[in-house]
Design a protein around this nucleic acid. Sequence first.
DNA 1: GAGTTTGAAACT
DNA 2: CAGTTTCAAACTC
Length: 751
Amino acid sequence: MVVVERDRQRYRVLDNMNTPEKTQIGSAPHNFQESPVFNYINSLSPIQPVKSTHISQTITALSFASIQSACTSSYVISRKQPKPLQRRCFYEVSKRESSIVRNEGNRSFEVLDDIEVSQECPAQEAIFDTSFENSEFVIELAGTLKCDCGSPISDFTFHDSKMNPMSEMNSPSASLVQSVNISLESFGTEVDDLAGSCQLDEMEEETGCCWENLICDESNLLLFDSFTDIEAHNVEDQNVVDYRETCSLTSLSSELLTDDDSPTPKPIDLVDCGQHEGKEHLIQRAEVQEQKETDGSISNSQGDQNASEKMDDRLRNSSLLACEADSHQQHNMRRRCLLFEMAESDKENFDNRSAVSQANGKSNTNDMKSVKPKFGNGSTPCMLPGIGLHLNALGASAKDCKIVKREPLASRSQSATTLGSITSCLDHSREEILLREDLDKKITKSEMCDAKNGVLDAPAAFGISEEFNQGNLKKKKKSNRVEQDGDSEGCKNCNCKKSKCLKLYCECFAAGIYCIESCSCLECYNIPAHEDTVLATRKQILSRNPLAFAPKVIRNSKSVTEIWEEPSEISARHKKGCNCKKSGCIKRYCECYQGGVGCTIGCKCQGCQNTFGRKDEAEAEEKTETCIKEKVDESLSKNKELKDEEQASVQLPCLPPLPSAIHSGIPCVPSNVAQSPTSRTLESDFVPDIMLHFQDERPEVLKGNCLPMAGVKTASPNSKRVRVPQNEFVFQKSRKLVLKSISSQSRNNAQ
DNA sequence: GAGTTTGAAACT
DNA sequence: CAGTTTCAAACTC
C-alpha cells in the first residue's frame, strides 16, 4: 500500500512536472478550463496524461529492475560470486573452439546476467530504495529517473526534455550525457574533482541528491546511451574512448557504492570492447591510467582500498586489451563481452598486466603466482572441450562459494539457473584472478597465521595458493568442506595417490577441473601441462560412458545447502542410484545422501534409511502409481466392453452414480464395476466417477497447490490406504495426466 | 595422523 | 552382466 501511495504521488507530480503547460493552465480560472477553447487546446497538447502515466509506470516498473541492470552489474556479480574458483575448469580450453560463448552466446549471457542481476541484488535495491525514502520529492523523482537509466527505453524517457525535470533545473538533458562524458575527462584523476567540476555537482546542490548515486546512474545512462548510439550510428573512436572511460567510471561508481570491506572484487563487466580501436591506443590509455594511479591522484583511496582499486583498474586495462583482440572482428556492442573473452585472453591478459605493471615498477609476482597452476608451467588452466561438459564443475562452481552468503537459487527459473551457472562458471576464472590479487595484497603472512588459527578463514575459503596455505589450512579446508558446503561437489581438493588424477576416482578430474596446488595428489597429470593427456583420457572415458562427467545428482534449482535445510527435494535424484550395503545411505559414502537427494528405485542399496527419501518410499510411490494406472486401464477396457454391449443390446435406463465413487476417492479395485458391470451406463461407471473426483480437485490443482498428504485418498488394491510418499506433486501430475487420458478416451467412447 | 570402512570406478 | 580389484573419500580412533 505504501508503494502504491508513493506511486500515486509520483503520478501526480510527474503529471505536473511533465506537463508544465497543463499545470499552468490548470492554475487558470475554472471557467476558462471549461471553455471549448481550452478543451481544444488541451486536446491538441502533445503531452497526454496517458504519457505521464506511462512514465510513472516506467518509473515504478523499471526503477527496481533496471537499477540493478544499469548500475550494479559488476557490483552484483561481485556479490554474487564472491568466492573464486580455486582453479579453472579445463573446459576453458574450449573457449577457443566454442563459438557459443564468444559469439552466439553473448546476447544470451547478457540477458541471463540481467536476469540474475534483477533477481539478485537486494543490496543495491536497498540503496536506491533508501534514496527514495529519505529524499525529498525532487530527489526522489530524480532518483527515479536515474534508475530508469538502466534500460534503453527509460533512457529515452530520460532524454525527453519535456519529461525530464532535471532539464528544467539545470542543463538541457540532452547534454547531460555529454556533461558526464566531459566530466569523465577530469574524472580520470580524482573523484572529488568530478564532483566539483561536473555539472552533476550543481544538480546535486540543487537536488540534494547523492552525487555518487547520480554518477553511477548517469554513467550507466551514458553506457546505454553509447550503446544505442554506437549500435545505431557506428560512432567514432573518440566516442568509444569516452565510452570506455564511462565504463571505468561506472565501475568506480559501483565501487563507491560498495561499502563492504570484503575482498570482493569489482569485475569489469560493463566494458564494451567491440569497437574499432587500435591496440596501441588501448595500451597507451591503460598505461596512462596506470601512471595516473601511480601518481597517487586518487586522494581518497588509500591503503588496501587503494591497492584494491588499482588492481581492479589494472585488470580493467587488461580487460580492455583483452577485448581489443576481438574488436576488429566484432562491431556490435556487448556489455559483458569481457565475461567470455577474458577467459580466452587470460594468458594475454597476464602478459599484458605483467608488462603494464613492470612498466610502472610494480611487482607482479604475486599476481602471476597466484594464478599459476600446481606445476607452474605458466599456462592458464582451461576448461576441456566436449559435451561431457563441466556439469559437475558447474555444480561445483555453483555450490562452491558457501562461505559468502548468496542469494538462493530457488528464486530463479530453472533455465536461468542452469545457464547462469554456466555464466558464473565462466566468471569464476576472472573473479579468481581478482580475488586472488586482492587477497594476495590484503592478507599478510601474519593474517595467514590467524587464518590457520581460524581467525581469518578467507584463504581457506578462497583456496589461495600459497606455500603457507598448506598443511593445517588444507586440512581445515577439507574438514570445513563437510561443514560448510554440505556437498562434496563443492571445493575439490583431491588426494589421489595412484590414479594420477586421470580417473573418475579423482574428484577434480571428475568435476572437470584441473588440480591445484592445494590438492594433495601425487603424480598428478590433471594439470594444464598435461592437457593432451587429460583430454585424451576424458575422451576415452566418455567413449565408455557418455554421461561419465555428467553431474551425479540431477537436481532442481535448489542448492545442496537448501536441500539439507529443507529436505523436501522433489525433482532431484541421483543419476545412477547408489549401491550402499552397510552405510544405510545415511553417510556420505552414499552418493545419494551426499548429494542431498533421496534414494530411488534405481538404487540398489540395502537397508536404506536415507533421510532425504528412502528407497522403499519411492517404491511405494511407484507401486501406487502403477496401481492407479492399472486400474484406470482396466476400467477403460471395461468401458469399451460396455460400449460394445450398448451398441449390441437395448439401451438400458440410466442409474444415478454411486455416491461412494464421489466420496471415497479412487478405488483401486472397482468392485462396483465388477459387481454390476452391465447395469450401469457409461456416465455412472467407474471412469466418470474418477472424473468427478478429479473435477472436485481441479480448482486446487489449478491453483498450483499440492494436495495435502491427508487429502490424497488413495486406496491400495486391498482397499487399504497407501501413504503417498513425499513426491506428491509428481503423483498429482501423473493423476492429472491420467485424468486427461480418461476424459479424451471416454469422450471418444461416448461418441 | 594413521588406520579402517565404504562404495564407486575400473577391470576381467 | 556379474564378480573382483582398485581406488580415494569418508570415517573412526
